[in-house]
Write a protein that binds this DNA or RNA. Structure first.
Length: 223
DNA sequence: CATTGATCATAA
DNA sequence: TTATGATCAATG
């Protein structure tokens, strides 16, 4: 059972609304999928299930998930107190061939420009099959948010370009941060050192900090 | 106990 | 092999 991609934003939001309140077991059953016991060896399972349920069509491509609509889908794990549990992966950090890259041409901007946030119950006290989908909402950065995201991106990409990879830690950045993003500590990519030589280094990704996505969720709940 | 750094599965 | 989907688990 394959769901076709929604043709309009309204059609997408209608599907999101229909998902709200359903358990993961319920949705998985509709696709003849079994629910893993836990996420330890299936970390992306919930996100992939939501892609199926909503008809995301970007597959493994450098997205957005809904290509025709330019909308990126992100699940937002939330505990029983409405607290966002995890940071949100955005995209890989280009370690090479990034000279002259501008904010508005970056993958980060492309994905953050329009996001469908889909809160998912993720309290450890609730078993995976019993967890429910919350109320999804569309978000685009406002002027202030974009300015801060852009500053973060620029500061971090400047460090990448200057070969300061070893000095990049997850502590840098107000909303955005860079953290390792690989299969394990042995996966390596080519980057550039401070002296301009090509070096092997960990693959990294841009992530949105938990407190930032928490603020988005809080604002939505308030409205 | 929150965050950083490390890791798991899968598709193309 | 690299990018997608993320969460796990060590650390301070």
């Amino acid at each position: 059972m394959d769901i076709l991609p929604p043709k309009t934003k309204e059609a997408l939001l209608a599907r999101v609304e229909a998902l709200g309140g359903l358990t993961l077991a319920h949705i998985a059953k509709d696709f003849n999928l079994s629910v893993p016991a836990d996420l330890r060896q299936s970390k992306g399972w919930v996100g992939e299930l939501m892609e199926k349920a909503l008809g995301a069509d970007a597959g493994c491509l450098a997205k957005p998930d809904f290509r025709q609509l330019g909308i990126e889908l992100k699940t937002l794990p939330v505990d029983n107190n409405g607290r966002v549990i995890e940071s949100t992966y955005v995209s890989v950090v280009p370690l090479l061939n990034h000279w002259g890259l501008q904010w508005h041409q970056s993958e980060v901007y492309g994905k953050l420009a329009k996001i469908l946030w889909l809160p998912i119950e993720a309290d450890p006290a609730i078993s995976l099959p019993q967890r429910r989908v919350g109320c999804g909402f569309l978000w685009s950065p406002n002027t202030v948010q974009e300015a801060i995201l852009r500053q973060d991106w620029q500061e971090l990409m400047d460090m990448v370009a200057l070969g300061e990879l070893e000095q990049i830690s997850a502590k840098i950045g107000t909303y955005l941060q860079i953290r390792p993003k690989g299969a394990n500590g042995k996966s390596l990519r080519w980057g550039v050192s401070a002296s301009g030589e090509k070096i092997l280094t960990l693959p990294r990704g841009f992530y949105l900090r938990r407190l930032f996505t928490q603020s988005l969720l809080d604002k939505y709940q308030f409205l």
